[in-house]
Amino acid sequence: MNKMEWGPAMPLDNPQQRVERHTISVLVDNEPGVLARVIGLFAGRGYNIDSLTVTEVSREAGASRITIVTTGSVDIIDQIKSQLGRLVPVHGVTDLTVKGDPIERELALVKVAGKGDKRVESLRLAEAFRAKVVDATVDHFVFEITGKVSKIDTFIGLMKPLGLVEIARTGVAAISRGPEGM
């Protein structure tokens, strides 16, 4: 523990505090209603959810991993972690952003319809972004693209003028760098 630094006895509703984006991993017992508990907590206490993904990660242990991307002041982020931590079926909460630059990936399926130059251009861009064609007719493509959120955002932005029809995104899966687990 570091030497204690005394701050002023300031309240936590400080409007000057910078808003940060954090990626939080929550390992939960895979019991019925556990996702509702987590989402209800965010809704009930007015926290933001930018992205939320959940899947079972260990069948034997009956554990699921929830990855939440949220924004808030440092104090709110701390509250979010404490509130998550006290949910009864939660094994552990890790702030991947605090641990340092986590690996974050998202998958998107992007449907683009068009003919002629636009169609050729969309395929060319897809190759540049290493998106795979997973379905096609002479009138359309469905691209599968994986990467950081920003990469997918950029790709979708480029597809807009080329006949973007619809998008399905998975939300962020994230993991920390280095050999340790959460």
């Binding site: 204690m4 006895a9 300031m10 509250q79 404490s82 509130q83 931590g85």
Partner: peptide, 14 residues
Amino acid sequence: IDPSSISKTVRADI
């Protein structure tokens, strides 16, 4: 005993 009670509205120094 509840970590979420700490620094919820008033910052705790210790």
